[in-house]
């Protein structure tokens, strides 16, 4: 194993980790706001990937240019999910947490079924994109360009999320999370804030989906694995912490790449799971968990 190869794998892992982190950020944002774990998160990623594929196929619009479009689509989807399903679960007094878990699980199964019905079970991929097939070389380290671009955009997403927390709206989010009954007294509409929170969370997954569609196959259950990694990232970083999601995503991406290189590609997730379990031994609420 040459040092260049190890470096290349490590950088690739970090770039992939940034993408994982964006998926996890959407999840942790929603959780931090209202204590709800979205088990349909993987299905939203899948939906975003199919949307990208469909738009690319019918209009030829390059995935990169679709970023705002698909993000907006997913934002709307997130708001709709909140309005139709989640707002109802918040009314429920008995077994509320249970209802949230299984409602979002049900939604996930429904969406995967819908994708199977509309697109079939065959794998799809976007072949003729602007970035597709190109590489970026630094000496002996060669990286696929779609992966590099996805890392850069992911970083931008995190910059935006960190900035968001300092805006007026970010403060309203924070206040709603702290005490939604008190903010109602000063005229903040809880449903509006929560709905927008779901919108932003889904939009983050939407962006990840577009980036991923550039270099990854698309199938009805493509989201399952990414969602699983996102749950691990959120639990590892601490539920509700955006910074935690970023750090955990990076740790996971790097661990996964190195496990695949050193142990075996088919066991690459074992490394992630072991690190996760080890961290939870010492920090049951993750690295940055407050709750």
């Amino acid at each position: 194993m040459s040092p260049a190869l190890i470096l290349q794998v490590a950088i690739g892992g970090i770039l992939m980790g940034l993408l994982y982190a964006v998926v996890a950020a959407g999840l942790t944002l929603i959780f931090g706001l209202m204590n709800v774990v979205n088990f349909a998160h993987g299905a939203l990623l899948m939906a975003a990937m199919y949307a990208t594929w469909l738009i690319h196929r019918s209009t030829g619009l390059d995935p990169l240019l679709q970023l705002p479009l698909v993000a907006a689509l997913l934002f709307g989807t997130g708001v709709a999910i909140y309005r139709v399903l989640i707002a109802r679960t918040l009314q429920i007094r008995v077994n509320g947490a249970m209802v949230q878990i299984f409602t979002t699980f049900g939604l996930s199964i429904f969406l995967v079924g819908l994708a199977q019905l509309v697109f079939g079970s065959d794998f799809q991929s976007i072949n003729a994109s602007f970035l597709g097939g190109r590489t970026l070389a630094f000496g002996a380290v060669v990286l696929p360009l779609p992966l590099v671009a996805s890392g850069v955009v992911s970083l931008l997403v995190f910059l935006a999320l960190f900035r968001l927390s300092r805006t007026e709206f970010g403060r309203a989010l924070e206040a709603t999370r702290e005490d939604f009954e008190a903010v109602a007294l000063i005229g903040v509409d809880r449903d509006r804030i929560f709905g927008i929170g779901w919108g932003i969370g889904a939009a983050a997954v939407g962006i990840a989906g577009v980036l991923l569609a550039n270099f990854y196959y698309i199938s009805p259950d493509v989201g399952t694995n990414f969602a699983l990694i996102a749950y691990v990232a959120v639990a590892l970083g601490g539920f509700g912490s955006i910074l935690g999601a970023l750090i955990a995503g990076l740790v996971i991406g790097l661990t996964e790449a190195l496990t695949a290189l050193v142990v075996d590609p088919s066991l690459k997730q074992i490394g992630i799971f072991l690190i996760y379990l080890a961290v939870l031994m010492f920090r049951p609420r993750g690295l940055f968990g407050k709750l």
Binding site: L107, S108, I109, F110, G113, Q116, G120, P220
Partner: peptide, 14 residues
């Protein structure tokens, strides 16, 4: 029509 079965199942759960 693969998929409808999952949609029915998921909708029922919700």
């Amino acid at each position: 029509a693969g998929g409808i079965d999952l949609m029915v199942y998921g909708a029922l759960i919700m």
